[in-house]
Structure formats: C-alpha cells, structure tokens
Design a protein around this nucleic acid. Structure first.
Length: 549
RNA sequence: GCGCCCGUAGUUCAAUGGAUAGAACAUAUGGCUUCGGACCAUAAAGUUGGGGGUUCGACUCCCUCCGGGCGCACCA
C-alpha cells in the first residue's frame, strides 16, 4: 500500500538523518500519512515535521525540508514513485504520484489473472460476527435491518481481508417472552374460532402477525385445540412461522447467517452451571437476599448485578457471559458483536467478567449502533405491534436501497427515518448512481466483445481523468485497511460513490470506442478494471451490480 | 437525578487533532446528431447547538450549559 510505503520511507529518512547527526536522537512519535483535501497539496501528505517541530522546538518547515532533501536520494524517488515531493506552509510534506507509477499500477491490476488484491490482514484467523439475534417473537423491525446490513457487510469485508468468518445469530426461545407469545397466539386462535371475548394475556403481543399465525393453525388443524391448549405445539408452530418470516426478510436483504445459536443449548450442555460454579470459586459472585450477585464492583464496574434470582432463574447476563466464553473457546480470534444502544450499558459487564476469569477480552469488539426512529412516528413497540417492519421498507424501496440506507451512515448516528421521504427519494438514491456506472461499463463492453486484452500500452493512459480514475482504484485497499481498524463500513459506501464519480469524469472526457486501436485497448482495460472494483465494492455492500438497468 | 450516545448547508449525512469543513438531495442556470441523460457543468447555501479551556493547529480532546435518543429490574 502506498501509504505504508511513504511512512516507511520517511522513517528511514529520519533514521538516516539522525545517524548523520543532522537531527537529534528521539523516539519516533506517531504520525500520519493521509489524502489532503485539496488537489494542489498532492496525493498524500504527512504531518511528521509539524509534530517534530513541537518536540524539537524547531521550525517544522526546516525539518520538512531536511527530510525532503534526504528523500531525493531514496530509492522510492529513484524508481519514480513520485513526480514531486515538497514542503508547504505550516510544514506538511506533500507527495505527488508520478504518471509512470499510476500507469504501471494500472497495468499490473488490469492484467492480473488472480484477485485484484490479496489481503492478509486476518492471516487466516477465525472471526465471528454476531448480529440481529432477535428472539422469534415477531417480525424484524428497522433497527434489526441496520444490524443486518452492518453485520453482513462487515463479515464480507473481513472475509476479503483474510479471516475465516462465521455469521452468527443468537436467540432464545425459552422464557417469559415466548410463553407470552404462545398465549397470544392461542388467544387469537380462540377468537378466530368464535370466542370473540377470549382475552389476550396481559402484556400480550398485539401485532397483526399473531392473528396470521393463529389463522394458519385454524386452517391446518381446525378446532382441535379449542378445549385445551397444547402449549408446546403452539410455541413450536409460532416459532417456526416467525423464524421463516425472519429468515425471508433477511434473505431479501441478502443476509444469510451461518449459525443460529440457541441460548438453551448453553443450559443443556451445562455451560451456565459451570460458569456459576467458577464464579463462586473465584469469589466473583456472592449470595444476598436469596439471590446470587455478580461482584462487578470488584471488576472495575460500578454496581453489582443479580445473575441468579431468588426464584433460582438466571438473569440474561449469566447466559450472555457463558455464551461469550463459548465464543472464545470455539477458537474465534476476533469476535464482533453488533448491538443496539440499549445494550450499551450491559456489554462492559460481560467484558469485565471475561477479563476477571482470565480470558482475553480484547478479542471481543462491540459495535453499538444507535436507534432507528421514525420521523413524526409513534414509539416503536414490538409488544404493541406499533412498529415499522423491515419488510415494509424493503417492499417500498427495495433491498439494495434499504441496505445502502443503513450502511452509508456511521453506526453512531441516530437515524430518524422519514418513510415518505425515503420512498419519494428512493429513485434518487446514490446507490443507483453506483449501479449505473457499472451498467454503463457493461454496455460499452457489449459493443466491443471481440477485443483481446492480454496486453495494452499503459503509457496511453495519460489523460487527467484517466489518472484520477486509476488513483481512486488504488485507494481501494486503504478503505479495506481502515474498515479493519475501526469497522466503519460506511467508508465503503462513500468510496464506491466517489469511484463512480471518477468513472463519470473519465466517461465524459475520454472516448473508449474511437481513435486508434491501441488507445481503445488501453481504455477498455481500464474500464474493465473499474468494473471489477465497482462490482467488488457492491458485493461487499451486499448490493447488486446489474449489467443493465 | 445518574450513566452512555448524538447535535455539522433547507434536508440526509461525511470529514484516522491538520491546510479554504465536504458530498448527495432539494433550489437556480446551462448542456443530448456523439460509447446509456438513472448523466455532466456552474451557482447559491455554514458562527460545526451556546460558552469556556487544552494545542503550533479543534467538528474532533476536556469542562459547562441547552436540545434529542438509549439505559438505569431479582425483564431480555
């Protein structure tokens, strides 16, 4: 990667300058190489001399010039990576890539028979991404959609980065919520059979989908259960229906999980009991008022919390901890949890316990996304059935737009969705702009099917718009590295859009089919390369790359 | 009341402590005899919620106030 190369070169220069006693000896501080906002400042810029200026109490400008002077001798300079390197105003060192370098990189990428880039960030390690994880008590809502999009795309990026990735869905089909669901379905069932006043349980599920499930039971099995409820049967039926619904919704967004992990397995396999035993042995839990308390205050957290109630039922923290221990034991080196902000308070407890038990909690990365709310809408409640389902929005704007809608925003933003606006504006969604660029390339390619493209003269790619496009293509690996660092998948949306913009500029300025045969060949190679990078970006985002629109 | 998150153009959002805060949509104007006009070009639009502080440099870090979201159960 060019960034890393520049960093290395600068470090080398400084060491050399120190050896020659042109600079005093010091520990090299962190510094940055980034893309300047303005074109005139070059393709990359480095702030090292500003930082050193402060440390050495010397003019940054002067230090910068010293480094640049030395860089002139370096081998990167000699192989003509840069057209120009200079120091500007406050003391930034600016690097301008040479045309020769861009051309040769384009040639390398365009003629490779393999994948465009091979990332070895994950080094074959195991990664797990847990997301959605909704209990089967109703259809998925908008918040789940946000998780589904982020989790799935993150998993795709990690897989490209060289991890072996497992996409996991954790759920619980035991407990109060499910009993409530079962009884709600039964109530609707009885009502459908004529008992108009058969009451919904207190705090029962009021959503219309409950009636649909009951209707199915009536159609299939008639009044078989009118006298007496078969709880197990109703529960199982409701669960199956709802999971079918959930999986279908996820599939409409291009999301498929590898593993559905049921919380009850943790109990069946004795993992929860074992955890309780360990916690007691290590004096991390104690009895009080008939309940078992977790001594979080001794683990750097504020308040102790109950993990086993006086009724001897566990609270959700307990299996959650057991589950995360299992994740580590299953050999995952990178564990990503995607949770809504309602979990923001809880997960540090889980991490604290992992640490106290001697597990490497740094393997667990938690991404908290803020809630999706509706503009002018009522509060969304699953129990009351007053929420916008993910299906509704997918129906309105389609899977591609839905995914982009959730992916283009950093997970920390609060999304206030205006459903009408989203619908009205969906035709103008940026996702179509990216897809259009792809389709347009395909269209050009359809007209030139007989071209052979094993080789081409890369020196012919010298128009500014061609070189800008090449530069943008070379940025792709940087985006992947950045996402691996901070899991900000939205970067990829912005990248794909700007790549499409660079292609539009090229399309405007450079005719592909015209002029000489050699130029056509070179430009065809460039647009095929562009198409591959667009398609790859879209694939990672889980969005279709259509050949025609 | 306490804790976490958020507040950036009319709107939706970007901006690993860096240079004149950027895009899209909406608005205004112009561009098809030409590889796809779902496109392109130009313009207007900002006291980055307010006020302090740290720094060579703050949308970014710290303090405080205002506004919004989410938590604060022997619910999950």
């Amino acid at each position: 990667m060019i960034k890393t190369l520049i960093k290395k070169t600068i470090k080398g220069s400084i060491k050399k300058l120190q050896k020659e006693e042109k600079l005093p000896v010091f520990d090299l501080p962190e510094f940055k190489v980034e893309h300047p906002k303005e074109e005139k400042f070059g393709d990359y810029s480095c702030n090292i001399s500003l930082i050193l200026g402060n440390i050495l109490k010397k003019s940054p400008q002067e230090i910068g010039e010293q480094i640049v002077e030395d860089l002139k001798e370096s081998k990167e300079r000699k192989v003509k990576l840069f057209r120009k390197v200079g120091v500007v105003k406050p003391g930034f060192i600016n690097f301008y890539l040479s045309d020769e370098f861009l051309q040769s990189e384009a040639e390398k990428l365009a003629t490779t028979q393999n994948d465009l880039w091979e990332f070895n960030i994950g080094k074959g390690k195991k990664a797990q991404v847990e997301f959605v994880s909704a209990n089967p008590t109703g259809p998925l809502h908008l918040g789940h959609g946000r998780q589904a999009a982020i989790g799935d795309s993150l998993a795709r990026v990690l897989a490209l980065s060289g991890y072996k990735v497992t996409k996991e869905y954790y759920f619980n089909d035991e407990g109060q919520q499910m009993r409530n669901l079962t009884e709600s379905v039964y109530a609707r069932y009885r009502q459908l059979l004529g008992d108009k006043d058969f009451p919904l349980p207190e705090r029962g599920y009021e959503g219309e989908y409950i009636r649909d499930i009951a209707k199915k039971i009536v159609e299939k099995e008639g009044d078989k259960f009118q006298k007496k409820i078969d709880k197990e049967h109703f529960k199982k039926y409701a669960e199956e229906c709802l999971f079918a619904l959930i999986k279908k919704t996820l599939k409409n967004m291009g999301v498929i999980h590898d593993i559905f992990y049921n919380e009850s397995d943790l109990y069946k396999e004795g993992k929860v009991d074992a955890l309780v035993k360990t916690l007691k042995e290590k004096c991390l839990a104690y009895n009080k008022d008939g309940a078992l308390w977790l001594k979080l205050s001794k683990m750097g957290r504020k308040d102790d919390k109950v993990i086993v109630k006086a009724s001897s039922d566990p609270t959700y923290r307990l299996p959650d901890i057991a589950y995360h221990i299992e994740k580590i034991k299953r050999g995952f080196d990178l564990i990503i949890d995607i949770f809504g902000s309602d979990h923001a308070e809880e997960y540090p407890d889980v991490l604290a316990v992992l640490k106290a038990l001697g597990y490497d909690e740094s393997k667990v990365k938690v991404i908290i996304h803020q809630f999706v709310t509706l503009k002018g809408g009522k509060k969304m409640s699953k129990r009351k059935g007053t929420f916008v389902t993910l299906d509704q929005i997918i129906d309105e704007v389609g899977g591609d737009v839905t995914r982009f809608l959730f992916l283009e925003k950093a997970s920390g933003t609060h999304i206030e969705l205006d459903l009408n606006l989203a619908k009205d504006k969906s035709e103008k969604n940026p996702v179509y702009y990216i897809q259009y660029a792809h389709a347009r390339i395909c269209s050009i390619l359809r007209k030139t099917e007989d071209c052979s493209l094993d080789t081409f003269d890369e020196k012919l790619l010298k128009h500014k718009s061609e070189l800008v496009l090449v530069k943008k293509i070379l940025e792709f690996p940087e985006i992947i590295y950045d996402i691996n660092k901070d899991f900000g998948i939205h970067r990829l949306c912005y990248y794909a859009y700007s790549l499409a913009t660079c292609f539009s500029g090229f399309y405007r300025d450079c005719k592909v089919i015209s002029g000489g045969k050699d130029l056509t060949q070179a430009r065809l190679s460039l647009i095929i390369l562009t198409k591959k990078v667009l398609a790859l970006s879209l694939k990672l985002l889980g969005i279709n790359a259509p050949e025609k629109m």
